[in-house]
Amino acid sequence: MELQQFIYVLRLLPEYLVESNWTAETNEVVGRHFESLKILLEQDTVIMAGRTTTMDDSSFGIVVFKAESEVEAEKLMLSDPAVAGGVMTAELHPFRVALSNLR
């Protein structure tokens, strides 16, 4: 069975757009989020992940990944430490990489 591709779009909760609102706990949650994505990349689940370089209400991050089904994709998205930890919201979308120079 060929895996499907999905994308989830991450947005910081508005209070975290202000750097002074970040706590040690917020930093720890975001650190776990990054480490989790690195593991999923090593497991060939994540295709790519990244974020805008702005810190305003237009800021967002994306995770492009593979899953067996939309149900499995949603489980993966909701288990993201930043989502589960209440630092970011996430929206899931079916996706297909059409062109890439990633190796």
Rank of each mutant, 00 (worst) to 15 (best):
M1Y: 06
E2C: 08
L3I: 10
Q4S: 13
Q5V: 04
R11S: 09
L13T: 01
P14L: 02
P14I: 03
L17A: 06
E19Q: 13
S20M: 11
T23Y: 03
E25D: 10
E25L: 08
E25V: 07
E28Y: 11
R32T: 08
R32N: 15
R32Y: 12
H33Q: 06
H33E: 04
F34W: 11
E35H: 11
I39W: 06
L40G: 00
A49M: 03
G50T: 01
S58G: 10
S59F: 02
F60M: 08
G61I: 02
V63F: 04
F65D: 00
S69L: 07
E72G: 13
E74W: 08
E74N: 13
K75C: 09
L76W: 04
M77A: 05
L78Q: 15
L78W: 10
S79C: 11
S79R: 13
G85H: 11
G85P: 08
G86A: 00
G86C: 01
A90Y: 02
A90V: 03
A90D: 00
A90N: 01
P94Q: 10
P94F: 11
F95E: 05
F95W: 11
F95S: 06
V97I: 14
L99M: 15
S100L: 11
N101G: 13
N101D: 14
R103Y: 14
